[in-house]
Structures are given as structure tokens and as C-alpha cells.
């Protein structure tokens, strides 16, 4: 099996993989404008040059506690992607690498038909298991979060 190019990132301490094909760019998000009332995972809006991105915090989805709002608003590193014509910036702790991975099936314990449907498989990192994320489903899940 031929491996695929993946972007290795860390979200709330978890190592995750983004399909490089779906990553629009890697950005440094500046000031974030809050969007009160929006889905819980929405930190707010940020301008990326002349485009407006919706900044998402997906930590809760990965089972990690959210950052406090004040800290989230400061911005930081994010993975930009376009889903259904909308630009999203998924906040990450750090970006580590881009390399080729051979993805294996997700562990049996993970409910990949339900709550964890955004996990497409796993990759073997350095001394850890990396979760490969499906951007479309991840954004859909995050948007539905109350």
C-alpha cells in the first residue's frame, strides 16, 4: 500500500494527522473576533488576508478539555481548510511535520461509525499512535456541538 502525505499536528496534547491534500495552508491566526451564540467549538472569526475564517477548537471532540476563552482569543497556530466553500482554521497546539504515512485501521474500541466518525485510521508516529482525521466530518461534528 502506498502511503499518503500527512500533516502531523498536536491538538490538546494528542498527535493527529491531517491529509495534506485537504490542508489549504498552515496559518498563524491573529486576533479572533468572538461569535456569541455559535457552536461551542467556534472560537470566533479571524481574517486571513482578505478572507474571513471561522476558527474552530476541536479539543472537546478529541476528549480533551477546551482552552479557556481568553487564551483562545489570542490566536495561534491553525490548519486552514475549506469545507463546502467556507474557510475554517482548526486551532492546533503545534505543527510538527509533513511526511508519508501508511494508515492502519482505527482501533476497535473507537466508535468510528458514531461519535468518532471523523477518525479515518491511525498512523504510527515516534513512540505514539497518531489519529488520522477526516476534515469534512471533523468540521461537521464541530459545527453540531452544542
Amino acid at each position: 500500500m502506498i502511503g499518503s502525505l500527512q500533516l502531523v499536528a498536536r491538538i490538546g496534547g494528542c498527535g493527529v494527522l491531517f491529509d495534506a491534500e485537504r490542508v489549504d495552508s498552515v496559518v498563524e491566526v491573529g486576533a479572533v473576533v468572538p461569535a456569541p451564540g455559535a457552536a461551542a467549538s467556534v472560537i470566533g472569526l479571524a481574517a486571513m488576508r482578505s478572507r474571513v475564517a471561522t476558527v474552530l477548537d476541536v479539543r472537546t471532540l478529541l476528549g480533551v478539555a477546551r482552552c479557556p476563552d481568553e487564551k483562545r482569543r489570542e490566536g495561534g497556530r491553525a490548519v486552514a481548510t475549506i469545507v463546502d466553500g467556507h474557510l475554517y482554521a482548526i486551532a492546533v497546539d503545534s505543527l510538527e511535520d509533513v511526511s508519508t504515512f501508511q494508515l492502519g485501521a482505527a482501533p476497535a474500541g473507537l466508535d468510528t461509525t458514531g461519535e468518532w466518525d471523523f477518525v479515518t485510521g491511525i498512523g504510527e508516529g515516534q513512540h505514539e499512535t497518531l489519529l488520522a482525521l477526516d476534515v469534512d466530518r471533523l468540521v461537521a461534528r464541530a459545527s453540531a456541538l452544542a
Binding site: A35, A38, L45, V52, T54, S143
Partner: peptide, 10 residues
């Protein structure tokens, strides 16, 4: 411009 669904749901 239209906002993302996650924002519009407000």
C-alpha cells in the same frame, strides 16, 4: 458573505 454553518446556527 455567508458565514459558516457553525456560526449561523446561533
Amino acid at each position: 458573505k455567508p458565514a459558516a454553518p457553525a456560526v449561523m446556527r446561533a
